[in-house]
Simulated scan of single mutants.
Amino acid sequence: MTDDGFMGPPWQMDWTPKAQAVRDTLPEHVRKTVDAVRAELVTAKDPYFRGVDTDADLPDGMKVRPIQSSVPKGPRIFFFGHGHGWLRHTFVRRVEDPQIVVEEVFWQ
């Protein structure tokens, strides 16, 4: 737990059935990249990636942006593969079981 009583990483992660189905149909090398994205998300100190350059420590070709800048605790898009793919996720902040929910995966 953090100083404010909020649990910290590693976060739990769940996938919507549609997102999981898309992930499962991706080529193996892309699934490995998605697995690397998952590892970055569940170990992030701040799952909202707030602030300037908070995603600067991510591996090359990965970045996180809010879907709407006016909703600081809203859904995020995690770009990977130098922009060839993205994963849309939300963070459900609960005291006992906070988790990241992957809603959509896309690869082009």
Rank of each mutant, 00 (worst) to 15 (best):
M1R: 03
M1K: 04
M1L: 01
T2S: 05
T2W: 00
D3A: 15
D3V: 15
D4E: 13
G5Q: 13
G5N: 14
F6P: 06
M7W: 00
G8Q: 05
P9V: 03
P9R: 13
P10D: 13
P10V: 13
W11Y: 15
W11K: 13
T16C: 13
T16E: 15
K18T: 15
K18C: 07
K18Y: 12
Q20I: 01
A21C: 02
A21Y: 01
R23H: 06
D24Q: 15
D24G: 09
T25C: 13
E28Y: 03
E28F: 00
E28M: 01
H29R: 00
R31I: 12
K32C: 02
K32H: 03
T33K: 07
T33R: 06
T33I: 03
T33V: 01
V34Y: 02
V34P: 05
D35G: 09
D35M: 11
D35F: 06
D35L: 09
A36M: 09
A36R: 07
A39P: 09
A39N: 15
L41A: 11
L41D: 10
L41P: 12
L41H: 09
V42Y: 09
V42E: 15
T43G: 08
T43Q: 13
T43L: 05
T43K: 05
D46Y: 04
D46E: 10
Y48S: 04
F49K: 02
R50S: 12
R50H: 10
R50I: 05
G51D: 04
G51Y: 09
T54Y: 00
D55C: 09
D55P: 01
A56G: 00
A56K: 13
A56V: 05
A56L: 04
D57M: 02
D57A: 06
D60I: 09
G61L: 13
M62P: 00
V64W: 13
P66G: 04
I67Q: 10
Q68I: 00
S69F: 12
S69M: 09
S70D: 15
S70G: 08
V71I: 07
P72E: 08
K73N: 08
K73V: 03
P75E: 13
P75R: 14
P75S: 09
R76S: 06
I77E: 15
I77K: 14
F78D: 01
F80V: 02
G85H: 10
G85S: 11
H89D: 01
F91G: 07
V92C: 01
V92R: 09
R94I: 01
V95A: 12
V95C: 03
E96W: 02
P98E: 08
I100G: 12
V101M: 11
E103S: 06
F106Y: 11
F106A: 07
W107R: 07
W107I: 07
